[in-house]
């Protein structure tokens, strides 16, 4: 469980987080959605001890991240946005070091490496140097590394950024599989479809503040189910409808070049903030 109370972060005089309040329940897959610079990564960096908070407090499974930081750090695994593996070491050595850092006994480390490499489909790459892996393999290895010590919370910061569509879907499947094992997942993304596909609940963050928080269905429900996009006056405009026939009728009446599609989280974000996520 993740509890965040009035979390504030200022970089010198620039506010990055302006009082975040949030609770993520055990076993939930929670997505933090917002444009670049909204404060997504800053929140994760504070929760995982990579950055200091300016004010407020946060607890991971009941452990305060400041006053009980070592116990709090035992609760989570972290997959940062950038690849931060040891490129000169092998796949197996990268996992072993993580096991050492989390004080796992030697025989547990060996069996856990076998188990995880099988889990992510990299068993035959055990002795491969990380620098020889593809981007998708590195991303999966980072997820495996974060799971080495069997954390109850997994922080995923833009886990599929830079991956092609095929690999991205493999990573999503892996994330779903991890959640099914009871792990609480806190995910940041600016991919709309990623949040829609994976998340139980979504928080929209903009300028360091949460502007909406609900299930993806509820966030979109207020707008309708169908959208007509039209390029007019050098801008993309969207109109929302509750039914497909209603939208089609509107498009037929005006004979303009409309594109019909389902409403998505981007529409909900746009309606709330007046701008797009990505």
């Amino acid at each position: 469980m993740i509890e965040i109370v009035q979390l504030v972060k200022n970089y010198k005089s620039t506010p990055a987080l302006r009082g975040i309040d949030l609770t993520v329940t055990r076993g939930e897959l929670f997505a933090y959605l917002g444009p670049n610079g909204a404060g997504k990564t800053t929140t994760i960096r504070i929760l995982t001890g990579l950055a200091r908070l300016t004010a407020g407090r946060a607890m991971l499974n009941g452990h305060d991240i400041i006053t009980d930081s070592l116990a709090a750090k035992k609760q989570f695994g972290l997959v940062p946005q950038h690849i931060n593996l040891d490129h000169e070491l092998t796949v197996s050595e990268n996992l072993r070091i993580h096991g050492w850092l989390h004080h796992l006994p030697g025989r547990n480390i060996r069996s856990r490496i076998d188990q995880l490499l099988d889990y992510i489909g990299l068993s035959d790459q055990r002795q491969t140097l990380v620098k020889h892996l593809s981007g998708g393999m590195k991303r999966r290895l980072m997820i495996a590394r974060a799971l080495m010590h069997e954390p109850q919370i997994l922080f995923l910061d833009e886990p599929s950024v830079g991956l092609d569509a095929n690999i991205r879907r493999r990573v999503w499947a892996l994330i779903k599989k991890i959640q099914q094992q009871g792990v609480t997942i806190f995910l940041t993304t600016h991919y709309i479809e990623e949040a829609e596909f994976l998340a139980d609940r979504v928080a929209f963050i903009d300028h360091g503040q949460i502007v909406a928080l609900d299930t993806p269905q509820n966030l979109m429900a207020g707008l309708g189910s169908w959208a007509l996009d039209q390029f007019a006056a050098e801008q993309m405009q969207s109109l929302y409808f509750h039914s497909q026939p209603e939208a089609k009728q509107y498009a037929a009446d005006y004979h303009n070049g409309f594109t019909l599609r389902r409403v998505n989280l981007e529409d909900a974000f746009l309606a709330l903030t007046g701008k797009k996520v990505a």
């Binding site: 995982t48 001890g49 990579l50 070592l70 116990a71 750090k73 035992k74 989570f76 972290l78 940062p80 950038h82 690849i83 931060n84 593996l85 040891d86 490129h87 070091i97 993580h98 850092l101 989390h102 004080h103």
Partner: peptide, 14 residues
Amino acid sequence: YWHIFEEFQAAPIS
């Protein structure tokens, strides 16, 4: 460059 230091920062070590 490699950002590996973050692995230590996030680990439960003093």
